[in-house]
Simulated scan of single mutants.
Amino acid sequence: MVQPTTTSNASNGSEHVVSPGCCAPFDPAEWDKDEITWNERPFLRESVRSFFHVPLDMRQKAKRGTRLVEAADAAPERGIILCEERSRWGANLYIEATRPIAGADMAFLSGTYLTKVYEGPYRDAPIWVQDMQTYVSSEGASAEKIYFWYTTCPRCAKAYGKNYVVLFAELSTRA
């Protein structure tokens, strides 16, 4: 297992955690309570098997999809991987790309999305969804779908000491 390295600043005694290698540090301020509009934004789609909402092959599917995007030279600077739960037995992953990829199962997301950042264990997801729905309502809107962006893998979240998850609420109506 790759361990994160730290650098110390002797003058003020602070420490800075350096990435363990796969996930870049995440700045929640960039994504908290933001509004994003996409028009046919390309994403490679992968299906994930779950058992009572616990993903069984998410890591493998995310790696496979990311490799396909990179091999097609279609990787954005910081790729977003959205997760949409279909049922307790499966979910879809949407791996951001800069353009369509020949032969891949592609989805093109369009619409306006409100985002909100959460931090904590994955078991808090139902609380986050309820809070997100309240936030969307307070903005005079309703959500058609809610997507999760797990900003780091579990290993990097542990290394950074924070498990940030961004919820994207696709707006269906707005007052």
Rank of each mutant, 00 (worst) to 15 (best):
L167E: 07
L68H: 04
E77T: 09
V69S: 06
T115K: 00
E119Q: 09
M106S: 09
D34V: 04
L171E: 04
P28Q: 00
F26A: 02
E85Y: 12
P76G: 07
V166N: 11
R123T: 13
T6Q: 15
M1C: 13
C23M: 04
T115Y: 07
G79H: 12
R86T: 10
T7P: 03
Y147H: 07
T5A: 13
A72K: 06
M58T: 04
N9K: 12
R67C: 06
E85A: 15
G161P: 14
T7E: 13
A10E: 13
K158T: 14
C156V: 11
E40K: 14
T6L: 14
Q133P: 09
S19A: 11
E46N: 09
T98I: 04
A175M: 09
I127A: 07
S50Q: 12
S19F: 06
T151E: 04
V48Y: 02
T115L: 06
R67D: 10
Y118V: 00
H16E: 15
P121R: 08
S142F: 05
D57I: 02
R67K: 08
A157D: 14
P20T: 05
D57S: 03
C22I: 10
P55M: 09
S172G: 14
Q130D: 15
E35F: 08
T115P: 03
P126D: 12
Y113N: 00
V69M: 01
V129G: 08
T98C: 05
A141C: 11
D32M: 01
R86N: 15
R86S: 10
A157M: 03
D57C: 02
G90R: 10
R174F: 00
D105P: 07
T66N: 04
F26H: 04
S8M: 15
E77I: 02
K145G: 08
G111N: 07
T37M: 04
A24D: 09
G79Y: 11
I80N: 02
S14Q: 12
E40R: 14
T7G: 13
T152F: 08
A97C: 05
F26V: 02
F148R: 15
V165I: 02
E119V: 01
R67N: 11
T152C: 09
S172E: 11
S50Y: 02
T134R: 14
Y150F: 03
L171K: 01
E30A: 10
